[in-house]
Write a protein that binds this DNA or RNA. Sequence first.
RNA 1: GUGCCCGUGGCGCAGUUGGAUAGCGCGUCAGACUCCGACUCUGAAGGUCGCAGGUUCGAAUCCUGUCGGGCAUACCA
Length: 569
Amino acid sequence: MSNLIRDAMRQLDELLLDAYRAASGAGALPPDAEPSGVLEIPRDPSNGDFAATHAMAAARAMRRPPREIAGALLAHIKLDGGYFATCGAAGAGFMNFTLSDKWYSDVLRAAEEDGASYGRSDYGGGKRVMVEFVSANPTGPMTIGNARGGVLGDALASVLEMAGYDVRREFYVNDAGNQVELFGKSAAARYMQICLGEDAVRFPENGYHGDDIRELAAEVYGREGDSLAALPESELARRFVEIGIPRNIELMREHLERYRIRFDEWFPESRLHASGYVEDTIRRLTESGLTYESDGALWLKNTALGADKDEVLRRSDGSYTYQAADIAYHRDKFAERGFERVIDVLGADHHGHTVRFGAMMSAPALRSALGVTQGELEFLLMQMVLLKRDGEVVKVSKRTGKALTLNDLLDEISVDACRFFFNAKPDTHLEFDLDLAVRQDSENPVYYVQYAHARICSLIDALGADGHCVPAARDIDAALLREPSERELIKQIALLPEEIVQAARDRDPSRINRYVTELAARFHKFYGACRMRGEREDVLKARLKLADTTRRVVAIGLGVIGVTAPERM
RNA sequence: GUGCCCGUGGCGCAGUUGGAUAGCGCGUCAGACUCCGACUCUGAAGGUCGCAGGUUCGAAUCCUGUCGGGCAUACCA
């Protein structure tokens, strides 16, 4: 549970405060003007390991030039024995600090002590969070878009767990409603086409054209012949729903398992309908005066709740809309199951919905009508995946049946590459170049990171054969690790807990991709610059410890995003 | 029309509670293996951060306007 970056910053804050007190006590700076500022890690290492902006920020209040303030503070700062070795004023008034041997040593010790839980923290304070993601319609196979949502949701959940949240992963199964009906009708039509001929049966408008529907119909025909053809159309469609939907759900489960995603809960929409929970929810809204009837339908007074337009809850034919079920579903998340935070991962094409729905779910009137007393809803929107084939963008559509499915994709490229590749920043379009991705030996950056891990493993084996074991952190002298490449590597190792916290805070698990890539890069650089075999025993030991620590941190980082860390490649 | 998201070297992207000379990968060019894995490393070229104003010690980052692209605006989910 250690975080040496934060520890160093905390210490630096105190040092600066003490320095100010000493300086103002000595009359070098005005009293009652305690400076505050930002502590940051400078981009350029020649500006030190940490920089403070306090002097610039205090310039106005103190009516002194920033450099003079910095000089006064630094003249009174006491660094001895702590995490900082040197300090100096630079630029417009920055105060720059370099880290001490003790800090570097403590990083390696902390990583060792924390073991497999290095990187974890209690930032989230055990708050109960649900991440709902994928939630693909069970009307067909999952698409590339689901592949992206799956990775993002799963990695986000992992990041939140590492950051100390109590996390549940949930898949909302839309096994009710119009799309499911359309699925049944589509399959029924395919079946009848087999019985009576393609041209004799009209295919439903907006029906599902996918091959999986034809296969389902053919399979049923193979088993039952045309014995079902006499059934009324609606009954036949219902039969296909009963057969096809559970099967599709099972397939999704299998494919997601293959993708290394497991949900704590598969929550069926149909349960909300069957238990009367939707009905009860809508009744509460009506009793609270939040609805009205028009044209035979029941409408939610959505505009009164902060949205841009009203919405239908119950259609004129008596059936409930998706909105109605979704309100009930989220009422269940907050009021019945007590989640303090719910994050829905959705495609950006749902953003119109999220704006309205988010406004509704935070509206006091609606919350009190539903008995929701706590909990906040947020959305993680991800932009579309653009498939590129032969340099051309191909649009994905479940309707036309021309989508490349998640499972197809996994037949062609490794789960590791897939997960790494899709874990990109959610708010930009992702270009997925199929021609590149289908190559097993592609230049995907995941190999770069995994290679670092494998390389360290064989390095440790090789040195082990020479009788060198990885030493304990207390048995090495970290002061021997003073090459720039060594220090840059240790600093990157120290950054993991902070990266996890930031990824959790920003709901951006793609930070971890960048983190492990940078970690691997720094290792490769270290590896090129520093040798072990043939070096002095104590130097060899220190470097071996550094390499082994790197290995473990690479594995932890890759683990967070669901990518394996192979010992050999 | 209205709302949301995105415009950063040839391509793909980091960098947003405002910080120092705007970074990285791919590609291009030039180098490095009798060596703990060359699936690696080193160096170079390449930018008025879409454009125009504004805010201030300081702006890729904040504000306003504008242009370009995407998405959404169903008794679909």
